[in-house]
Computed example of a mutant assay.
Amino acid sequence: MCGRFAQYRCRDEYFDALGIEDDQLVYDPEPVGRYNVAPGTRVLLLNMRDEHLHLDPVFWGYGPEWWHKQPLINARSETAPTGRMFKPLWQHGRAVVPADGWFEWKKAGTRKQPYFIYHQHREPLFFAAIGKAPFDKAHAKEGFVIVTAASNRGMVDIHDRRPLVLRPEAVEEWLSAETSPERAQQIAEQAALPESDFRWHPVTKKVGNTHNQGEEMVAETAESD
């Protein structure tokens, strides 16, 4: 699953990694600076509307009117395209979360040790997401969820689910309104980064408190810290 992640680079770095040029995008060299992003907050979300790319602050969580529980924050790639909850979002609300890594907690006896997971070359990551479009409008708790995939090889020792991280060259097609739901499912299956592209290290347990921010949240530390 993905219940916490980091989004700390500047917009320009994310756009450069994608090779995107769009006169509707708002470029900004100032770092976003969020090292401990939690559900229930607004997150910069890349999406396409009116044939242009946009980066909007969108609520992380999704709970339609008939859903009387806490908003969901993840959707399984295997079931989201056809399930009652997420099928409409898969069809008309595909988006991408630019990120720098995510956190998972590994059980160690009676305690849990947080780990930060990131690209082996420290490149930006692009999480597949789906949500309530259009993303420039407020929809109460109908925001977005991060699409997850199974951690079949190499990462299962930390968690059995992980964000579906798209290859940069697949992002625009994933976002395009012309991409069919069936093709989007193929992209999810074929254009995701493999587990071998990631590295991870233990980080401070302070990351468990959402009020704690700063670069020290993603810095490597001893597992006993």
Rank of each mutant, 00 (worst) to 15 (best):
H54S: 10
Y118T: 09
D225Y: 12
P194V: 06
K205M: 12
T148L: 13
E51W: 09
D160R: 10
R94V: 06
A17Y: 04
P181L: 13
Q213M: 04
W67Y: 14
W67R: 02
C2G: 10
Q120G: 12
E216W: 11
G131F: 10
N212L: 07
A170D: 08
L193F: 01
T204Q: 07
A108Q: 10
L175V: 05
L193M: 14
F198D: 03
V37Y: 03
P98S: 13
K107T: 13
Q120N: 03
P64G: 11
Y62L: 14
D225H: 14
R94G: 11
N212S: 07
K69P: 05
Y35H: 13
Y8H: 15
Q213G: 07
A38P: 01
R76L: 15
A95S: 05
I187P: 05
T210K: 07
A6I: 13
V97P: 12
G83T: 15
E51Y: 07
K132D: 02
Q190D: 14
E178G: 06
N152G: 15
D22K: 04
W60K: 06
D12H: 08
R162V: 10
P168K: 03
A133Q: 08
V147L: 14
P134C: 09
R76Y: 06
D56W: 00
Y8M: 15
G40W: 00
V58S: 11
R111V: 08
M48L: 06
L44I: 08
R183T: 11
P31H: 01
Q7K: 09
W102I: 10
Q7H: 07
S176I: 05
F59T: 04
A192L: 02
L53I: 01
R111Y: 05
P134Q: 02
D197C: 11
L72E: 03
Q91T: 15
R167L: 13
W67D: 06
P202N: 04
D197Q: 11
Q24C: 14
E13I: 11
A80P: 03
R162A: 11
V32K: 09
E30R: 15
A222M: 12
A140T: 00
E142K: 09
S176K: 01
Q113V: 15
E51T: 08
E65Y: 14
K205T: 15
A108V: 14
W105N: 04
Q24D: 09
M155S: 02
G19V: 02
T179N: 02
R199T: 06
K206R: 15
A133T: 08
Y35E: 06
Y14N: 03
S151N: 14
K112G: 01
I158K: 08
Y115C: 07
V165A: 08
Q186A: 11
V97D: 01
A222F: 07
L89A: 15
V37M: 12
A140H: 11
